[in-house]
Computed example of a mutant assay.
Amino acid sequence: MSYLDCVEVQTDIPATASIIWLHGLGANGHDFEPIVPELRLPNSLPVRFIFPHSPSIPVSINGGMTMPAWYDILDMSIERKVDLTNLTESAMAVQALIDREIERGIDSSRIIVAGFSQGGAVAYQAALTYPKPLAGLLAMSTYFATKDSITLSEANKDISINIMHGSQDPVVVPTLGDDAASTLNALGYQPSYKQYPMEHAVCSEQVSDISTWIQSVLA
């Protein structure tokens, strides 16, 4: 079995939980690596962080330039036309990483899938279709690209979903975060949703909130 190349941040003692964290368009697995110490998780909660590198593919909105991307974006309209085949394939590659964590001794209910921007769209698909219960889904500055095509897993109908968005985001406009939260509520989920006074980024208040949420869902 081949897996996505990943950056891994291990704890000094054996991990009891795992977080698979997906980067955005044009970035790589190192992008969110520096956030690990900023989360200040307690030593009593040993978490293995896994930051996969996406493949590099031509991206239509950037003139067909080849760059790290989880899927092709066909246009930047509010509907976000994307290559759903690419996206689904990336989600399956993330689910293979979840399977590997289970094989390494982590119970599925102690695995979180997180994603920023493009990575968040893949995280929605990967977590909500996974056939075993997961601990949580963290969706940052992103959108629910597969909301009209997804086949939801009954195993994750009660998953903890945390949606975070910048109120001044010019790249993924806040209405896309609003829409994701509304769609999930209509589907029977109970996502938390918070906006922060920022653009397409991550801020210190948000990092603190992420830490609190991680500790809550992995308690």
Rank of each mutant, 00 (worst) to 15 (best):
D169S: 10
Y143T: 09
G136K: 01
L87G: 12
V113L: 14
E205T: 14
I159L: 07
S160Q: 13
P174R: 05
S109C: 05
A114Y: 05
P131H: 09
L138N: 02
D107H: 10
S167M: 11
K81P: 15
A91H: 00
V173A: 11
G105H: 04
P170F: 10
A201W: 14
D178K: 04
S192K: 05
A145P: 11
T129W: 06
I102V: 15
S192M: 05
L187G: 12
L152P: 01
D178A: 05
S204A: 14
T146W: 07
V171W: 02
V171M: 12
N185W: 09
Q195C: 12
T129Q: 05
G188I: 07
T151G: 11
G119K: 01
N86P: 03
M198L: 11
T85A: 08
P170G: 14
D158W: 01
C203L: 08
Q118V: 15
M140D: 02
K81F: 07
A96R: 09
A181H: 10
Q168A: 11
A93Y: 00
L184C: 08
L176K: 02
D72Y: 03
E89D: 10
G177W: 07
E154L: 08
A93K: 09
F116G: 07
S77D: 15
P174H: 05
D75G: 08
E103C: 13
H165S: 03
L87H: 00
A123D: 02
S160R: 08
H165A: 07
P133V: 12
M76W: 03
V82F: 01
N156P: 00
I78R: 03
